[in-house]
Computed example of a mutant assay.
Amino acid sequence: MTDILERARQQVLRDGIGLELPDLIAVLRLDDDRIGDLLQLAHEVRMAHCGPEVEVEGIISLKTGGCPEDCHFCSQSGQFTSPVRAVWLDIDQLVKAAQETAATGATEFCIVAAVRGPDERLMAQVRDGVKAIQEAVEINVACSLGMLTPEQVAELRAIGVHRYNHNLEAARSYFPKVVTTHSWQERWDTCQMVRDSGMELCCGGLVGMGESLEQRAELASELAALDPHEVPLNFLNPRPGTPFGDQPLMSSQDALRTIAAFRLAMPRTILRYAGGRELTLGDLGTREGLLGGVNAVIVGNYLTTLGRKPDADLDLLAELRMPIKELAKTL
């Protein structure tokens, strides 16, 4: 039987066809002594099918905490004892954050709200916020506001939202152990509406939540079937007071195998470093992931956890000679 890396070299690198579930499982089972070869192949795939540029994004929470959903990894759920209080930002704060994000060289600024889906108050604030940002700074505006109705999808597109984020979070088979207040299908349906509207879709998930290797591969396979423009890859950062607060950190070796597997599943997709990489991978692992398939980063802090300083990521990109994608090239 052909070695999994040789099959991937022929199918993904040469032909641009992503690996399917059985081969993704084989990648995730590779021995530690083969991780270097795996990352090198994933990097070659990224360079061949995406190019050398890295997309930089900043995010900010418009409405933090008090969410009615019970996503077991999330400290913003109002159902858990995690110490995050409900807070709203005003328009001036959003504009200032967008300007600071643009100053790092970022092309994307994402407005996030901890909600099941937006009500009219939130939609009005997003409407005003997007308009104010567009008038003040040259940057693409993305949103992540939970599950949407068809009318809300149409409105976000009409006001100029460039990209919408809505993660699958976990494989369909593992999802009921992660969330019980809504279904995987509901998330999938919102993602499909966004894709059909013409907005770019940003859709990823979390790994290291207790799922099996097979379910980790299943998530990559499901995302590949959805074909989002961008996949943010998060590593669980266990938050006190949440049901997953006592989960052990994912090993850096498993994290690197996962990065490579996602790249080999989706050779042409923007694969973005998102939450948890600082704890799971550290500085060395962050570097290895950028040389193993990742071609986008969130700079600065996340929604309720601290990230690396933007200068640290930008300096690393410069050291690795990875040019930052210019705004004009993302439009």
Rank of each mutant, 00 (worst) to 15 (best):
F73W: 09
L38I: 04
E100V: 11
I59K: 06
T101M: 04
K96W: 09
D37P: 06
T104K: 04
R127T: 14
V112R: 02
C74I: 03
R46M: 07
V56R: 04
A102N: 02
A103G: 07
T64I: 08
T104D: 05
W88K: 12
P118R: 09
A97Y: 01
T101W: 00
A114C: 14
V112K: 03
S77Q: 01
M47P: 08
A86Q: 15
A102W: 03
D31V: 08
A124Q: 14
G58F: 00
E120M: 10
A42Q: 05
V126T: 09
L24H: 04
K63R: 13
T107V: 11
L62H: 03
P118S: 09
G78A: 15
R121P: 10
Q125G: 06
L38R: 07
D37N: 13
D70E: 10
C71P: 01
V87S: 12
D31I: 01
M123Y: 04
G58V: 00
E120P: 03
T64P: 00
L62A: 12
V54K: 01
H43M: 06
G117P: 06
E69C: 10
D70H: 03
R116E: 13
A103I: 07
L62E: 05
S82F: 02
E20S: 14
D92C: 04
K96P: 00
R34D: 11
C50Q: 07
K96N: 15
A102H: 05
E20A: 11
L28Y: 05
I59H: 01
L94R: 06
D70P: 03
A98C: 09
A97C: 09
C50V: 12
E100L: 13
Q76T: 02
M123L: 13
P52W: 00
F80P: 02
L21E: 12
R85M: 13
V54A: 04
G51N: 08
R29E: 15
K96D: 15
A114I: 10
L39C: 06
I35C: 11
T104F: 07
H72P: 02
E108T: 14
G78H: 04
D37L: 11
W88V: 10
A26G: 04
R127F: 05
I35M: 11
A86H: 10
V54W: 01
D119P: 08
A103T: 08
P68M: 08
V87E: 15
G65I: 08
C110W: 07
A26Q: 14
G36C: 11
E55P: 01
C71A: 06
G65R: 01
T64R: 11
P83Y: 07
A124R: 13
Q99I: 12
G58T: 08
Q40K: 13
E44A: 14
L38V: 03
A124F: 11
A106M: 11
D32N: 13
C71D: 05
E44N: 06
Q93R: 12
R127C: 10
D119S: 09
C110D: 04
D37R: 12
A103R: 12
D119K: 07
I25P: 02
P83F: 10
A86E: 15
A102I: 05
A26D: 14
I59S: 06
C110V: 09
G105L: 05
S82K: 03
T104V: 02
E120D: 15
E57S: 13
